[in-house]
Design a protein around this nucleic acid. Structure first.
Lengths: 125, 125
DNA sequence: AGTTGTACCAGCGTGTCAAATGGTACATAT
DNA sequence: ATATGTACCATTTGACACGCTGGTACAACT
């Protein structure tokens, strides 16, 4: 159902995200269905449970999954609508535009990096 | 005239920039005046010429200095006006606003960093 | 010849970060 | 007891960037 390629350059947690989304897209998993538990899936794939937890956590933030604590993790009721609504993809379109703006102002890549690191290190989350 | 603190955490090239600006601000250097050559200043301070060249290059971009090739480097005619007009400072106000925007969208600092690195590594300068 | 700024090439030391691993613990439920 | 998601602690690995150094070379000028 879900496979993992340890030799891929794609991070494991992201492989999980992609495949879970695809499974929902193909309707093999429907809204309300339960997913394997974090530890269970980690054991099947022989990877660390934290890695699975990370994938679940990110998918929950994007409203693709819903965690119900000790009752397990489920497919979000409106999961299908949110398969595309991806913060990662939004960042991937937004950030290059901003970087282009900095460069147009004459800033060096090095300067941009330094200013970025300062900006993100202050009041981080 | 210009001193360097090798033990400071402040990068050498930035120490140079700060001190050259201050010298112009104190009118010890006026528009049109010539600066010591890159190699000359590097020899006096016993640092690498590339470090001095970097400081000069950045100051020229900010219109504080003007390089005239084999004729040397001079204080920009309108240097005094441009002592404050700093791309670095502009970045320091612009980037935090953008980062705040990303965070408001729900992005993790880690995600922002990754997207940023991808954005800036493609077509770098 | 000597000097100017500039442009390449490379390397080193340091630090930071992402990704993943491992362990432990907790409250809440069956 | 057992299982759930979650939250801490920690370490390791690899990659990458910065700041700085060093060498070499070039065209243009005195």
């Amino acid at each position: 159902m879900i496979t993992i390629d340890l030799d891929s350059s794609e991070p494991l947690f992201n492989q999980l995200i992609i495949q879970i989304k695809k499974t929902i897209e193909n309707r093999l998993l429907k809204p309300g269905d339960s997913l394997p538990s974090i530890r269970q899936l980690a054991a099947e794939l022989d990877i660390n449970s934290k890695t699975v937890a990370k994938a679940y956590r990110l998918l929950e933030r994007d409203n693709v999954l819903v965690s119900k604590g000790y009752r397990g993790t489920f497919v979000h009721p409106k999961a299908e609508e949110n398969l595309q609504v991806n913060i990662k993809e939004w960042l991937d379109t937004e950030l290059p535009k901003d970087v282009a703006r900095y460069r147009a102002a004459g800033a060096t890549d090095s300067e941009i990096r330094i200013a970025f690191n300062q900006a993100i290190s202050k009041t981080g989350n």
